[in-house]
Design a binder for these strands. Structure first.
Lengths: 154, 154
DNA sequence: CTGCCTGCAAACTCTTTGCACGAAT
DNA sequence: ATTCGTGCAAAGAGTTTGCAGGCAG
């Protein structure tokens, strides 16, 4: 999905609920879609302020749920205290597993379509209907252990 | 593993590191092993105080890592703010997936031995060595939606 | 003028930590 | 004595929220 198309989707999402497309919300949206990789609320605040310096932390936290609700962003919680976000692209990557490098602190994502099947299989036996699933692998960097340097680091 | 055997393992773990088997640590241990299901630090504090009312919150938080390090407890982080713990039983259930009911707030556990294989497969392609993995399904309660009441709810 | 939106600052939750006292070896 | 362990209270991090003012329809 292009940035323009995504922005249109965001505007539609706002309009449908009678919410206004304010300059702050659009700045946050633009900053989010300019991110190359996973980002935190704090990084988003920083970048959004470069576009519109009136953006506050509170508005970032209030806008993030709007973007995840419209499926423009995915929330990625690796249990590290702070949450990460990533643009959802074309929306086909909703079934992804994360591999988190404990040394590099980097998050890799891998398509894992079987998760949906697994979630359904396992839930139905319990009388439940799956809403979402996550699969995460925490791992150590081989290169760091062998050479003392991580090629992906900084 | 019986409670007695587990307590012995805990004592051994403490002894090996020159740590003392204080009354507070043993009270926390006993309270942990008396739990029927997953429990939080707060619930553990409450129950440990029923055994030894000198137990403080700080000591609970300092003792929990000792018990997880000796593989007597497993930590279960479902991304809900607070962490859950569960006695590790005989230790064979290290590869478990969780199904978390969004309505009941209940945690079901399911053996998922393929997780280790998956973690290794996916990590090695990235030059990583897996340390741990988690697979969690969030789901809604069918009974609650249909009848308005959850049979598992208190 | 009515109501949505904002920034600011305070509040919140769970967990960790500094400190001085107490207990065990 | 020396080291380890404790309770208390404060600090911490990330996120949420109450409030008064501002801007839009």
């Amino acid at each position: 999905m292009t940035t323009t198309a995504a922005r249109e989707k965001f505007r539609a999402h706002l309009a449908k609920r009678g919410l206004r497309a304010t300059s702050q919300r659009l700045a946050i949206f633009d900053a989010a879609f300019a991110q190359a990789d996973h980002f935190t609320a704090d990084q988003l605040l920083h970048d959004a302020r470069a576009i519109d310096d009136s953006v506050s932390r509170a508005t970032v936290y209030r806008t993030l749920p709007l973007m995840t609700a419209s499926a423009l962003l995915r929330e990625v919680d690796i249990g590290s205290g702070e949450k990460f976000y990533r643009s959802a692209g074309d929306g086909t990557a909703t079934q992804v597993a994360q591999v988190v490098c404990i040394d590099c602190e980097k998050i890799f994502e891998i398509s894992a379509p079987f998760m949906a099947w697994y979630g359904h299989t396992v839930s139905s036996k319990l009388g439940l209907t799956p809403a979402s699933q996550r699969l995460q692998v925490s791992a150590h960097c081989d290169a760091l252990r062998q050479t003392g340097t991580c090629p992906r680091r900084g």
